[in-house]
Design a protein around this nucleic acid. Structure first.
Lengths: 241, 241
DNA sequence: CGAGGCCTTGACCCAGCTCAAATAAGGTGG
DNA sequence: CCACCTTATTTGAGCTGGGTCAAGGCCTCG
């Protein structure tokens, strides 16, 4: 745990790049960095399992991670897929309370882990930081709410279209993009079977004239896709993050 | 806004009864109470509509309130139903940012409203309070996650059984309870049509031998109901709150 | 070139939706 | 207290989105 041991300077800079930490004093971030750990994890790596001790937060620099739950009778449900600039783990949990979900790397990822007590302690002494995290949690909660709404109100092709729009680099006109991670995970993320995903994709193709080659999607008219997708949702097209 | 005007003392005591405020100094609660407003609202009252300015938090003393969203094509989705000791509204939103959901009283309710900036300011100066709210939000987020899981993994009768178990006063043996609010709302809360709710109820009757007279339900064997309901869920019977 | 994993297709089935109607339940004026 | 109206809730019948099961394709890597 010496200062020099693992070149902590770059870690502090990398942590500082996350918006959650903007506004913190450099020495605070440096203190975080001393407890931080850089993690390079290949696709398939389990970061932690549901209901097991995990006192870390993970900050994603690159790659993709899925958050999943398991029902008693064995089904797995992917409740989220996260990538660059996202983070996960629960600051607001006491000591070693386990999380109800697990996390697995689904595309090779670079992560930074941080013990959650560090942030909890910073909240105790730094009110504005607490408010910032609170705002972030509020956003996350709103996101989950949207998820509930989607499952209740949208059809399978619409949910797929919604996710494609979220991956889409442009807001209008045309665009191309590559579906990240495999379609089995994608299907579970959207609350449907892989077969249904496949059929949803071809339905979308018919309805909004987008074209698909393997994992690459070309959208000739983003607005047309949004029209098809967003009617059964409470939020108009460029959704909040 | 004089001190004597609306007998503020009882309001402070009533606010103090909410666990969110346990641990606050009496003078802080008293300061909150000076901005608080007691609201008696009859069934049917709209507290606020989606996407409209609302800078208040509401604390429920008695009655029921539904939280709902509206899709662009007109469907309404009830994402939550709340009662005594619950609160709603978003502390972590800036000034007059509107909420993506609305709130309506569905059983005559006694509420206390509080401007959200009050709590946000208290978080700024009181770290432990910030952490407490953070923990509460974490709990709420976990709740939403369960909701997603339920919609993705449970059948209609199972979702109904799950909600009945949540209303159930006992953890084992037998119990009786009354369904609050009307079945139309209940159906929407469970993400199904009223017809489906009705049929789900009779399916539950067959499967777990519970009996129903009007809005009163008698459960002869809570464990049997839990066995039927909780298999397709990640959490064993006495679910976390 | 072959094996295995991923993805798509086809055939069939079922939970839950829709539409239509019949019944309860609650509330009102007489 | 009753007849009447209005709003809930249940029932029936038929339809359909999405799930399940079982084959193929196809792409990748050894």
């Amino acid at each position: 745990m010496e200062g020099m041991q693992t070149a902590p300077m770059p870690l502090a800079a990398r942590l500082g790049a996350f918006s959650l930490f903007s506004g913190l004093k450099p020495e605070t971030i440096a203190a975080f960095a001393r407890h931080a750990q850089a993690v390079m994890a290949a696709k398939g790596t389990t970061l932690f399992l549901p209901e097991t001790a995990n006192e870390k937060l993970f900050f994603i620099e690159t790659g993709w991670v899925k958050i999943f739950r398991q029902t008693l009778d064995g089904a797995e449900i992917v409740t989220d897929t996260l990538t660059s600039s996202h983070w996960f783990g629960e600051i607001g949990l006491a000591g070693s309370e386990p999380l109800p979900y697990g996390a697995e790397v689904i595309e090779d990822a670079a992560l930074i882990s941080l013990p959650r007590f560090l942030l909890a302690e910073e909240v105790l002494r730094n009110g504005p930081f607490g408010l910032k995290i609170l705002q972030e949690l509020t956003r996350q909660k709103a996101q989950k709410d949207m998820e509930v709404e989607h499952l209740a109100a949208q059809t399978a092709p619409q949910r797929l279209g919604c996710l494609i729009l979220k991956l889409c680099p442009a807001r209008q006109g045309e665009a191309s993009l590559t579906l990240p991670y495999d379609k089995l995970t994608l299907a579970s993320r959207l609350g449907m079977q892989p077969e249904t995903l496949s059929r949803a994709l071809s339905k979308l193709k018919d309805a909004t004239s987008l074209s698909i080659k393997g994992h690459t999607i070309h959208i000739p008219d983003i607005k047309a896709l949004a029209d098809y997708t967003c009617g059964a949702c409470s939020s108009r097209f460029p959704c909040p993050p």
